[in-house]
Write a protein that binds this DNA or RNA. Structure first.
Lengths: 238, 238
DNA sequence: CGCCGAATTGACACGGTTCAATTGAGGTGG
DNA sequence: CCACCTCAATTGAACCGTGTCAATTCGGCG
C-alpha cells in the first residue's frame, strides 16, 4: 500500500503522538482487508464491529427508500475512518457501501480502553477530532441540502473531496481521481443526474474545474470556496 | 417543575438503572438554570461546558449565513439532552439557541468518568442511546432535505415532535404546544415561509393535522407516518 | 384602540425535474 | 481489429414544485 505512510502522517494534523502511540498506529496497518465495489460493509441498524481506517478506495453511507429513491449521507475517502465511535456498540444509522474496491484496516487503536485514556492522550484526542469532523460533515450536508443552490452544493462537495484527499498526499496539481458518477453525485446533493451534468458544465465553463474520465481538477480554489459559501458561514477545521 | 418526573421516567426507555444510578439521575434536577427565548446557549465552534437536560422549553441548533440565510439543523425538546458527548471537550458544530424560555439542568451524571463505566452500566447505555439518536436525527434531516417533497418533510418533522414529546407525557389527545413559527419551520425544512403555510393548510385540508394558536394536533398518525415515508426506509428506534 | 409580529393569500418567476433520445467511452468476444 | 454491448455522460423541450414579492388579515398585548 504505497500511501499508507502518507495516511498515517495525516494523523499528525489531529494530535501529537508519543512513541508508543505511533507504534500502535503503525501496527494497525498489519491486517488489511479488501472489499469489492458495491459491497455493503454495514447494514443500517447493525452495530459497527469496530472502526476501520480506509487505505484506498471510496465508500459512502446512504438511506434507501422502498420506491427506489436513495439519499447519500456522507462519503468516506482514503484516510477517513469508518464507524469510529468513542462509545462501544454504537449502531450504524445508515447503510455503508463501498463505492469502489476498498482496502481497510481495523482502527481500534484509536479508541484506547476507557481506563487507558490517560496513557494515550494523543490517540484519544485524535479520536475526538475525528468524531467532531464527522458531526461537522453532517452539519455541512444539512446546510447544503437545505439552503444552497445546485452550483453552491457542487462547489462545496468537490472542495470537500479535494481537501480531504489533499491531507494524505495528492499528485501535485489540484487533480484527483473521482470515482463518483454523476448519478452518485446527484444522490448525494439531492439533484437529478441531468442537473448534476448541467451544473458541472457550468462550473467548467466558468473555469472553476476541469473534469473528465473520472479525473477532477480544481482550477480556482478561491472562487470555488467563495461559491460554496465557506467564508459566509463559520468555518472551523479540517 | 411539574414534568420533571415524567422526563426522568422517559429515561427508562433507554436503559434500566440501578438504585445508585437512579439517585444520580434524581440529583441532576437539583440545580435548574433558566434561559430567555432567543438566548444563544453555545456559539458555533465553542466547546460544550457539559451536557444539559431540558426540563421545559424548546431550543434549536443552526448555521447562519452572512447574507441572512439560516439553516436549522435540529430541535431540542423537553426530555432531550443538549451537548451530550461521551467524549469530553467536544465542540459545538453549530450555534445552539433557545427558541422559547428554557429550563435546563446539568446532565453530567449521564457520562460516568471513564474508570466508572463498569459501575454505572445503565447510565453509560443511556448515554450511548442518546448519542445514537442524535446521529439518527441528523440522518433523518439529511434525507428530508435531500429527497422529500414539502408535505413529506413537514409530516416527518411534526411526527418527530409528537413522538419525542409523547415520551415524557402529553396531555392525552394527540395535542401539543408548538412554539415554532412558520418561519422557523421553513428554516428547518429548507422551505420558504409562504410554502410552509400552504403545506400546513394542505395537511389540514386532508384531515391529517389540526393547527392553530401555537397548538398542534395529530389527527391521523398512520397516514401522516406513511406520508413521511417512515415505513419506506428503515426505521429503528425512538 | 392601536400596534406589531405571525399567518394568509394571489400572481408570477425560476430552479430543477422528467422524459426521451443521442453520444461517447471502456470492455468483451469473435 | 472490428462488431457489439453496456453504462455513463450529454442534450433539448415541456413541465412543475417552490420561491419571491407584495398585500391583506388575524391575534395577542399594552
Amino acid at each position: 500500500m504505497p500511501n499508507a505512510d502518507a495516511i498515517l502522517r495525516s494523523f499528525d494534523g489531529l494530535a501529537s503522538f508519543s512513541g508508543p502511540e505511533r507504534l500502535l498506529l503503525q501496527r494497525m496497518l498489519a491486517s488489511p482487508l479488501s472489499h469489492d465495489a458495491g459491497e455493503e460493509l454495514i447494514a443500517m441498524g447493525n452495530p459497527f464491529d469496530g472502526p476501520r481506517l480506509i487505505l484506498s478506495g471510496w465508500a459512502y453511507s446512504c438511506v434507501n427508500f422502498a420506491d427506489g429513491r436513495r439519499q447519500i449521507i456522507d462519503f468516506y475517502l482514503p484516510g477517513d475512518v469508518l464507524g469510529l465511535s468513542s462509545r462501544t456498540a454504537a449502531r450504524a444509522q445508515a447503510s455503508f457501501i463501498a463505492l469502489t474496491k476498498l482496502v481497510t484496516v481495523p482502527a481500534q487503536a484509536l479508541v484506547p480502553p476507557s481506563d487507558q485514556r490517560e496513557n494515550f492522550p494523543g490517540l484519544w484526542k485524535a479520536c475526538l477530532a475525528i468524531e467532531d469532523r464527522q458531526v461537522f460533515r453532517h452539519v455541512r450536508q444539512i446546510v447544503r441540502l437545505g439552503k444552497q443552490l445546485a452550483r453552491e452544493r457542487m462547489a462545496g462537495l468537490l472542495l470537500d473531496f479535494f481537501r480531504r484527499l489533499e491531507r494524505c498526499g495528492l499528485e501535485g496539481d489540484e487533480t484527483f481521481e473521482m470515482p463518483a458518477t454523476q448519478e452518485i453525485l446527484g444522490d448525494a446533493l439531492g439533484l437529478s443526474t441531468v442537473h448534476v451534468n448541467r451544473t458541472l458544465q457550468e462550473l467548467r465553463r466558468e473555469g472553476l474545474i476541469r473534469a473528465s474520465h473520472g479525473k477532477m481538477q480544481i482550477l480556482d480554489i478561491d472562487r470555488l470556496s467563495a461559491l460554496a459559501g465557506e467564508t459566509s458561514w463559520g468555518w472551523m477545521h479540517y
